[in-house]
Computed example of a mutant assay.
Amino acid sequence: MKNVIIVRHCKAEGQAVDAPLTAQGIQQALELAEFLSDKGIDHIVSSPYRRAFDTIKPLANLIGVEVVVDERLTERVLSGCNEPAWREMLRQTYDDLDLCYEGGESSRTAMHRAVRVVEEVLQNSSQNAVIVSHGNLISLLLKYYDNRIGFDEWEALTNPDVYQLNFHSDVLMIQRIWTS
């Protein structure tokens, strides 16, 4: 059996690539490290965004596992423009996975790049891996494995949030194991 733990980053000061964690987010990252420290983590993959990397760095330091940075875990870009109606636009992309706004990425495209990361983790020698990313991408990744997940589940995600995917033979079990 393989376990893949999916982590949404801790509270950050914004959405920019280099947005740091807030003081509360730094504390959350330390609590998250303690929470995950006894899970036998032997592989960590993170989005290159600072808030994701800084979320998992305390765990990596605590257990002595190097963080592998993977560009495919960056947040999904909904549109190339700042759209006032972005929430409704996002809602529509859960119903139509191929809907793609100008300058953006469809849900299906984003979903598949995240799934490829999980598939690679399942093929490597690790038994308990952590993947750290962002809310929309994580919700799409979870939707790939459970089609009932959609906009409402994205909206209910917390910072941080943690899901465990247990892969055993042909059976997958998804369990939320942390919320803020």
Rank of each mutant, 00 (worst) to 15 (best):
R87Y: 04
E88F: 08
P84M: 07
D146M: 06
T109I: 09
H43T: 07
I41K: 02
A19H: 12
K143E: 12
E71Q: 14
N124S: 07
C81I: 15
L78M: 12
G25Q: 15
D18Y: 11
R116P: 01
K39F: 07
G150P: 08
A114Q: 06
W86L: 07
T74G: 03
A19N: 14
I56R: 00
F151H: 03
Y101W: 14
V130Q: 15
E102S: 05
A156H: 14
S133Q: 09
S106Q: 14
G80N: 15
I56E: 14
V118Y: 00
L30G: 00
E71C: 03
N128W: 11
D18F: 15
L140I: 04
T93S: 12
R91D: 13
P58A: 09
R113V: 08
G150S: 09
Q27S: 06
A85K: 08
L122W: 04
C81F: 10
P58K: 06
V117N: 05
D54A: 09
Y94S: 06
N128Q: 13
L62M: 06
D146R: 07
V132R: 02
D146F: 05
K57A: 02
V130W: 07
G64V: 00
S126T: 11
V17K: 08
I56Q: 03
R148V: 02
V45M: 13
R76H: 00
F53Q: 01
G25D: 14
D152W: 13
H134L: 13
A52S: 07
R87D: 10
S106G: 09
S106I: 10
K57F: 04
S37N: 12
C100H: 13
E155G: 03
I44D: 08
Q24R: 15
E119L: 12
L62I: 02
Y49M: 08
L141W: 10
F151V: 01
D146T: 09
L30R: 02
V121P: 12
L36R: 03
A33E: 06
L36N: 03
V115M: 04
Y145W: 13
D146Y: 05
D38Y: 11
L32K: 00
S133D: 06
E83L: 10
H134K: 03
N124E: 06
L97K: 11
C100I: 13
E75L: 13
A19L: 14
Y94W: 06
V77A: 09
E119P: 01
A129H: 15
S106R: 09
Y145P: 08
I131H: 01
D54S: 10
R76F: 02
I138A: 04
R87I: 09
E153M: 09
L122A: 00
E83N: 07
L36K: 01
V130A: 13
D96A: 11
I138G: 00
A114F: 13
V45I: 12
I44L: 12
C100W: 07
R51A: 10
S46T: 00
N61C: 09
S125W: 10
V130I: 09
R113Q: 05
V68W: 01
H134V: 05
I149Y: 14
V121R: 03
S125T: 15
N136K: 04
F151C: 02
S126G: 05
F35M: 15
H134P: 06
E120V: 00
D70V: 03
P58W: 11
N128F: 08
H134I: 11
K143R: 05
S47H: 14
D38H: 13
E153T: 03
E102C: 05
S46L: 06
A156F: 14
Q24S: 12
G25R: 10
V117M: 14
E120W: 02
I41N: 05
S79H: 06
